[in-house]
Design a protein around this nucleic acid. Sequence first.
DNA 1: CACGACTCCTGCTGGC
DNA 2: TGCCAGCAGGAGTCGT
Length: 282
Amino acid sequence: MPELPEVEVTRLGIKPYIEGRRIDAILVRNGDLRWPVPVGLHKDLTGTWIKTVTRRGKFILIGLMDAGQNDRGTLMVHLGMTGTLRVLQGDTPAQLHDHIDIRLQDNLLRYRDPRRFGAVLWHGLEDGPIANNRHLRDLGVEPLMSPFIESGGEILYRQTRGRSAPIKQILLAGQIVVGVGNIYASESLFRAGINPKTAAGRIGLERYWRLAGAIQDVLAAAIQKGGSTLRDFVGSDGASGYFQLDYFVYDRAGQPCRVCGTTIRAIRQGQRSSFYCPKCQK
DNA sequence: CACGACTCCTGCTGGC
DNA sequence: TGCCAGCAGGAGTCGT
């Protein structure tokens, strides 16, 4: 389920409870995720300390060090469509789809993923800089950081010249800017007044500035809203911890546009659903 | 290279 | 009420 805001809220929720802790044990109940969980993961992780909890795109990056403060590598966690990461008391019984337990000094970091579209990967020192990881190296810029903050419109404009693919597809691909998933792509395009079918190369600089602002507004609002659910990521074994903005168009096919009253339309683009207002978005 | 179709998996929902 | 086809918020891979 998660798009960037859900991943960021997960990261913020677990970080205070796992950073600085030692990893005492790893239990992999089912390593058959999107890619196989590395078989030797327990050897790489056990006895190391969690130094950093960061994010790149939709990957949560857990940086590890040894007792001498030397970097040891990075644990990469992707939540796919249905993944969750929770901090729990060590004696919390595992439920169906609780695939991985990372046992810390004073608690338990648990990965659950019913659909198993997510991933838990290891990037060791021998693999070089984490930025060169095959899953990270081709990602676009972060939407809520420099340079997108100050140059977002120009970046979108420049990188789409000559591109015939619909702007919705370009956003989802994540090669220009990361973190915009299916929901927030529709929502951002609505707020920018751009039809999702428009060829990306035919959109001008001024409209891309509006889109860049819309992407930042939508993602930032979702993260802020998620802040109220932070406690769900700790000690809570049930509630999803995820959250929804009040959508303008997503999943509102057949309902009136909240701005102009025109009926919202649903279309398929690249096997995914898109929603838009035919009057507000040209 | 750019683009679009297909794929992995389980769980729910909407329509009959 | 019960059944089941179809669809779900990601993203890598492959064929054209």
